[in-house]
Each structure stands twice: as C-alpha cells, then as structure tokens.
Design a protein around this nucleic acid. Structure first.
Lengths: 243, 243
DNA sequence: ATTATCTATAGATCTATAGATAATGC
DNA sequence: ATTATCTATAGATCTATAGATAATGC
C-alpha cells in the first residue's frame, strides 16, 4: 500500500517537485499578466490557476513584485543573448558594411523566430513584456535586461547610416520598439479592423514585413540631414489646426 | 455673515458646481489611469487626489468601469472628428492623387498638434489611451471610438498605394499605430536609452519624424507586390536561427 | 531532518450602499 | 424642494504570516 505504487505520478525528488511547481506558477503568472497586466492579477488568481494555495505563492516568491521579476527574468536572458549573438554574427558576416535591414533582421527576426517556434510559453512571455512595458515596473525591467542588446543594435545602425544624427537614430529605434511591442501583444485589434484579413497571431506575416518596413522608415529619417526638403506647414496653419 | 461674503469662491450654481467637480474627477482619473493603468488605480486614489470622499465618485459615476468610459468618452470625439476633418480636407486638397505621407500627416500630425498645444489634460489623455490600449477594456474603447477614422485613413492609403495588398496596408497601419501609441505613452525609456539626447516629452521632435518614417515604411511594404526581390533566408538557415 | 504544501487568520484595502447634512433653487 | 457632499458601515477581496501536516532525504 505504499504511495508510490498507487500514485499515477512517478516518484519525484523534492528538487524535481520544487522545479515543476515553480514552473507551473511562472507559466500561470506569465499568462495572466500578459492578459490583464501587473495590477489586473492577484496572487490568488495565479494560485487558483495552478491549483495550489495562495500561501504557497508566498513560500516560493515572498511577494507579488518578486513573482513579477521572476517571470521576467526566467526568459529575458535567453532572448537577449540570442539577439546579441545574432548581431555579433551579422557584424562579422557583413564585412564592415552593415545594412539597416540586415541589422534589424538580426534584432527583430531572431526574436520572432523564438516566438514562432518556441511554443505558447514564449508567445505569452512576449505578450507579457508588451503588456507591462508601459508600466513603471515593466519599463525598469526592460531597461535592465534589454538595454545592452538595444545599444548594440544602435551601434550597428550608426555604422549603416553614417550621416545620420543620434537623435534620428534613437527616435527611429523608439518607433521600431513601439511597433514591435504592439505586435507582440497580439491584442486582436488588427483582426477586427481588417475584417479577418490579418490575424494578430500570425507572426510569420509580421516577420515578412516588420524589418523591411522599419528599415525603410529609418533610412528615410536620415536621408535629409538638413531637413531642407521636408514639407512644412506655415506657423499660421499649424496654429489654426491646433484647435 | 452670509456665506457668499466670507467665502473666497464666487457663488456657483449647482450646475456649475457639478460640472467643476466632474471635471476635476475626470482630470484626476485620466492622470492616474495614464500612469498606473486601469487596474493600478482605485476609486479611493482618485477621490483622494480630488479631495472628496470616495462615495462621491459613486454618486457621479456609479462604478469604476463607467468612470473609465467617461474619461475615454470626454475627449475621444474631439480627436476623432478633428482627424476625420483633416482627412476630408486632405482628400479635397490633393485632387484625387493622395500621397502616403500626406494622408499620414493628416492623421498623425493633426493629433500631435492637439497634444502639443492642447495643454496637460490632452497629453494625459494620450498617455491614458496608450496605457490602456493593450487591455481588453481599452482595446474595446479604441475600436468603438476610432475605427471610423482609422478606416477612412486606410481608404486613402489604398488610393495612394494602388498596387498594394489589403494585408500589407493593414499590417502597415498596425505598425504605425503601435509606434504612435508607444510615443504617446511618454514612458521616458528613450530618455534613458539615449542618455538625454531625446526626450519622450518632445512631441515636436516626434512630429518632425513620425509621418515621414511611417510613409517610407508603408511604401516599402508595397513596392514588391510579388515579394520576388525580397531578400529571403533559406529554410535551413531559418530553422538554425530558431534555436 | 528537511522541505513542500495546506489551514487558519490578522490586518489592510476596496467597492458599494444607506442615510445624514449642508448647500442651492424657487 | 432638490441636489451636492459627507459619515458610517457591510461585505468582499487581497496580502502576508504563523503554524500544522505530509511528503521526501539520509
């Protein structure tokens, strides 16, 4: 009548049991945070989804902030180092003459591949990052984990666009990151808007378009250093339009 | 000793008093929602900021969801109709030959003018919309109020890019809206990242760049209808990069 | 002996409502 | 007479902790 004979589960060591429970908690928190944001989820919600008591959440994570940090940290290193590697590889491969699109493909498509092929957990992580990126806590996590890889990308972009001002490059990157995070959120807005022509789940469609779009945008920002050719409304028209 | 002689406030009618209190509540809620999201703010937080009792929030708005809707509705009509007017005006002005950048300027710059010149309340509304756009409630509000103006923009973009597929146009718009909303959020991430070269508060800098960037991106999406000329990695390389 | 999990509970906070009070409106 | 505002409070929910129970580890 020993438990190990009647139980369906194969015997687990404590370390295995701990690791499995931790992972189920992180998965559940990742999913719920991605749907409802940091403040839209309670520890009770997560515990309920996992099927354990709330106090076990405290046992493993102490408090909610540290659960949030653990969800972020679990996967952030992987995506960061994959992209750093891809950028390194591209730098060597391009023979000192990087292109904007090449750099962006190393940065964006490498990540998209992970979300396309990495399973639901990775897609939830992406949506989680997108959802919390606007909150102060989320922004701090993004800075902490991703600034190195972003700065590396920006270094390569500067080489690819030698005449371009730093301000144009940084603003251009800001637009790129906004669009990218929005896509990762998979909110379904494009599905409604397009009447089903596009699906926000379709990362392959994004991969086909995002880097090309953004490369053209960045390049266009930098082709007119003096801004002389830019169409510009008169001050009077601007004032009139303002209200 | 009549109150109206000792009081600093000039006498207000009940209608005025009601309107003023409502506006202070909406302002406070708008600000707090923009910083902490829908679920990061309690009715108590809003009441505290206004200096009234929580129960007065219920008196005016019944519950939190309707406060949220009221904050959204107060300004959504203005920005929507301003942009519809600008797109109408551009359609007439362009003589049947719209450009991508012209359409985007009518759509984006008209809104940016409002946030540049409309005062802090309008900038808070913009950040509020950006912050909640990822939540289910916020996405529903966006759909409800902004789909008409977005579909009008898309109609003009189709005229400006006659050979372009619907899917490319919708995905392109999705990138535009992601970048735009990200900028409206003014999270300060670009300030840190650029070491102070760019400030997320600087909407004039955004206006100088956003429409130009996005026009080039959209155009680049559509110049290769068959996708034959697009640089494409082999399936083997894609598989290798995926992990 | 150690650790994974659960029970019980305190204290804080939040939403919502009923009813009192103090203004303005005729 | 009506309405803007406040007081008091019920009930729900949430966080966090102390301590009990039931496994695994030597």
């Amino acid at each position: 009548m020993a438990k190990r004979l009647t139980s369906k589960h194969k015997t687990r060591t404590k370390a295995e049991q701990r690791a499995e429970t931790l992972e189920r908690m992180l998965d559940a928190a990742e999913y719920l945070f991605s749907k409802h944001g940091l403040n839209g989820v309670t520890l009770r919600d997560v515990a309920l989804k996992v099927g354990v008591h709330t106090s076990l959440m405290h046992y493993y994570f102490v408090d909610k902030r540290r659960l949030f940090e653990a969800v972020f940290t679990r996967r952030a290193g992987t995506t960061s180092s994959r992209r750093l590697d891809a950028l390194d590889h591209y730098e060597r491969e391009c023979g000192g003459a990087p292109t904007v699109e090449g750099a962006l493909r190393a940065f964006l498509d490498t990540d998209l591949d992970l979300y396309i092929n990495g399973g639901e957990g990775w897609r939830n992580f992406a949506a989680f990052a997108a959802q919390v990126s606007n909150s102060p806590e989320g922004a701090a996590m993004m800075d902490l984990h991703f600034n190195p890889v972003v700065l590396k990308l920006i270094g390569i972009l500067k080489k690819a666009l030698p005449g371009c001002s730093d301000a144009d490059i940084f603003w251009g990157y800001d637009f790129v990151s906004g669009a990218f995070l929005h896509v990762l959120g998979r909110t379904g807005r494009i599905d409604h808007l397009s009447g089903g022509i596009c699906q926000s789940e379709d990362f392959a469609a994004v991969k086909d378009r995002l880097a090309r779009f953004m490369a053209a945008g960045l390049t266009a920002l930098c082709v007119q250093p003096g801004r002389a050719a830019k169409p510009r409304k008169s001050a009077a028209v601007r004032k009139k339009n303002a209200r």
